[in-house]
Design a protein around this nucleic acid. Sequence first.
DNA 1: CGCCTGTTGCACAGCACTGTGCAAATAGGG
DNA 2: CCCTATTTGCACAGTGCTGTGCAACAGGCG
Lengths: 212, 212
Amino acid sequence: MAGMPTGHSGRAPGHSSRADANRRRILDVALAELLRDPDASMDQIARAAGVVRRTVYGHFPNREALISTLVDEAVQALSAAHAAGREGVQDPAEAVARSVLAVWELADRYRLLIALAQRTVTMQGIRERLAPVREAATEVLRRGFGQGVFSSPLPPPALAYVHEQMLVALMEAVNDGLVDAREAGRCAAVTILTAAGVPASDATALVAKLND
Amino acid sequence: MAGMPTGHSGRAPGHSSRADANRRRILDVALAELLRDPDASMDQIARAAGVVRRTVYGHFPNREALISTLVDEAVQALSAAHAAGREGVQDPAEAVARSVLAVWELADRYRLLIALAQRTVTMQGIRERLAPVREAATEVLRRGFGQGVFSSPLPPPALAYVHEQMLVALMEAVNDGLVDAREAGRCAAVTILTAAGVPASDATALVAKLND
DNA sequence: CGCCTGTTGCACAGCACTGTGCAAATAGGG
DNA sequence: CCCTATTTGCACAGTGCTGTGCAACAGGCG
């Protein structure tokens, strides 16, 4: 069918190191390139890998197969780290902490992948225009830190990012039917306060009070 | 230039209700449609709005202008809500709680927008394959709830979503230089534990202990 | 009724990308 | 050095989308 040897299937005879190296390099470069632009064309990827487009098709039948391989690699590594982090640990809190630490090692490698995967044109525009809001939120956080109301190892701007993403997480949760939409607002408020270091009981009480 | 009247510019004489209604409907439908697929074509949007592609171009010069209008509307509404929520409130914790609650009202309307904006093909694949990991994490959370180690208004599965997104937030923060990459892992662990209701001091101590 | 705004339907040029075929180069191992 | 797996370069068909031009048409307003 294809004009090139299968490449990834049976390699009966001796040498094939160059091909393997190319395949590897294509994958690595593709990761970096798809980061920068999730819609990067096969040509962009090939050129970045110092190879001709046709060669990429020699290793992966189509775009989807390439990306799929990429995602598989990342997820596999991440799963392993997560599992290793919590194996044999009794205390749930410690298990969570360990697996987060373990995952982060790799997450750091795939950081750009995930972070930029959600950098859709749409998302980009939203986040950009939302900057003023984020800054206002940061200011409130800063004030809270000053008064000792909040406590976190994160600087206020980073905590603002966290808050923003927590809202996103809650939206997903509601979309997936995990949380009742009417409850979600209060849950979000409590969880966000808690993440900022406000004792869970205080946060719950405060939010409950506001709902009169 | 265009074969159609400007449509959105000066409307000197009397009637224009139908055009306005169309414009409105196109925007509304576009919101819904771009949710389902951020790469929805102008034709898809037009058809969904019960209108011909050419008509859409009568209201918006190009795709970007349409999306831009959409995002502007959403962001403007959100900003207003956020500001209104915290105006005149002294206590930072209350300010945060109020603005979150206020934002949620609208977020609920744009929930799909934001949630699905990050539903890139890439993201989709990642989240899908990450499901097993998320489930394992949920299990640990559930155990923690049982032992009273964790506390949250959110059910374990939703909390798992939150944890996942918090990692994403931290990755973004690192990418943007807000947090040192070497610190980020520990910060992530502490923040995630804290969000799960573990007292900030305990979380910090636990994570510090793990770093020996 | 006739006008004017907005809508429709169709057609077209242009563009970018995908996946494939083929023949000619190339390079590393044996 | 020769052989073979691999890569290259080019060409091509197919697809789908964008933005625009134009002519016909609809319906409310005066």
